[in-house]
C-alpha cells in the first residue's frame, strides 16, 4: 500500500518534469538562447574587455564577480562552522595522545619526492588561471591536498608548521578579504563595487586585479582545506 502510494507520487512528480524537459530546445543546437545572447557576447568581447584570455576566468571573476564573492564567503563560513562545531568546549585536548605515525617507506619517499613538484604545479595552476584552464579554486585545492598528504607522512605537528599561527586567520580569510579589497578598489575607481576599469589602455590593471583575486582564492582555499582536515584529524 505504502509502496504503491510512493510510486504514484513519484510518477505524478515525474510527469511535469518530463513535460518540461521535452519543451527544452534541442541539446547542442546553435540557435539555443544560451548560445546567442550572453555567451556569444562573452566569447567575442571577453578577452579584451575583462582582462583574461581564459573566458571562464573572465566570467567567474569579472562578469559574475558578485556570485564568486558570495561563493568564497560561503566556503569561509564552512570553515568557521567546522571550527565552531569541532572545537566546541575542548580547545586544549589536541595535544594529549599522539598516535605514532608509521608510514610505509615507499609512500613516505614518493610523497617527499613529489611534494615540491605538486607545490609548483599548484602555483602554476593558480597564476596561469587567466590564460589556461585552472585558477584559484583548482590550484588552492591542489595546495590543500598537498598539505593533507604531507600531514599523513610527516605527522601532524610537523605539517601544521606549514601554516604559521600568527597569520593563520588572515590566510584562512584571504579569499573573501582579497575580493572585498578589489571590490572596494573598484568602488573608488569606477563608483561600482567590483567595477573593473574599462579604458582600453588599462587592460593590464584588469589582468593584475584578476591575478590578485586568483592568488587570494588560492591561498585562502588551501588554508581552509588544510585547516578543516587538521581540525577533523586532531583529538581522536
Amino acid at each position: 500500500m505504502k509502496k504503491a502510494l510512493v510510486a504514484a507520487l513519484l510518477i505524478l512528480a515525474a510527469i511535469p518534469l518530463l513535460l518540461a524537459v521535452s519543451e527544452l530546445p534541442p541539446h547542442g543546437s546553435a540557435s539555443n538562447a544560451t548560445y546567442t545572447h550572453v555567451s556569444a557576447y562573452y566569447l567575442e568581447h571577453g578577452a579584451e574587455e575583462a582582462g583574461a584570455e581564459n573566458i571562464i576566468t573572465d566570467v567567474i571573476l569579472n562578469y559574475r564577480g558578485f556570485d564568486t564573492n558570495g561563493e568564497v564567503t560561503v566556503i569561509f563560513t564552512a570553515l568557521a562552522a567546522v571550527l565552531a562545531v569541532l572545537l566546541l568546549g575542548d580547545a586544549s585536548t589536541a595535544t594529549e595522545d599522539k598516535p605514532s605515525h608509521s608510514v610505509s617507506v615507499v609512500v613516505s619517499f614518493i610523497v617527499r619526492l613529489l611534494a615540491p613538484f605538486i607545490a609548483m604545479f599548484a602555483v602554476y595552476v593558480i597564476i596561469n588561471g587567466h590564460i589556461s584552464p585552472g585558477g584559484g579554486f583548482q590550484g588552492g585545492t591542489i595546495l590543500g591536498a598537498l598539505a593533507i598528504v604531507l600531514t599523513l607522512v610527516l605527522g601532524e605537528d610537523e605539517a601544521r608548521r606549514l601554516l604559521p599561527e600568527r597569520p593563520k586567520p588572515w590566510l584562512q580569510a584571504a579569499a573573501p578579504l582579497t575580493f572585498i579589497g578589489i571590490g572596494l578598489a573598484g568602488l573608488t575607481d569606477t563608483g561600482f563595487y567590483l567595477g573593473f576599469p574599462t579604458a582600453e589602455a588599462l587592460s593590464w590593471i584588469r589582468t593584475m586585479w584578476l591575478l590578485a583575486i586568483e592568488i587570494g582564492i588560492g591561498v585562502g582555499g588551501a588554508a581552509i582545506i588544510a585547516s578543516i582536515f587538521w581540525t577533523m584529524e586532531a583529538e581522536r
Binding site: 585552472g134 585558477g135 583548482q138 585545492t141 591542489i142 591536498a145 593533507i148 582536515f229 577533523m232 581522536r236
Partner: peptide, 26 residues
Amino acid sequence: APDVAMTEAAVGAGVTTVLFLVAISR
C-alpha cells in the same frame, strides 16, 4: 569543460574523499 574537470578531480575525487575517510575513522 577542463576548468570544471580540474575542480572535480581535486575536490571530488581528492579532498572530499579524505574528509569522508577522516569522518569515518572518527
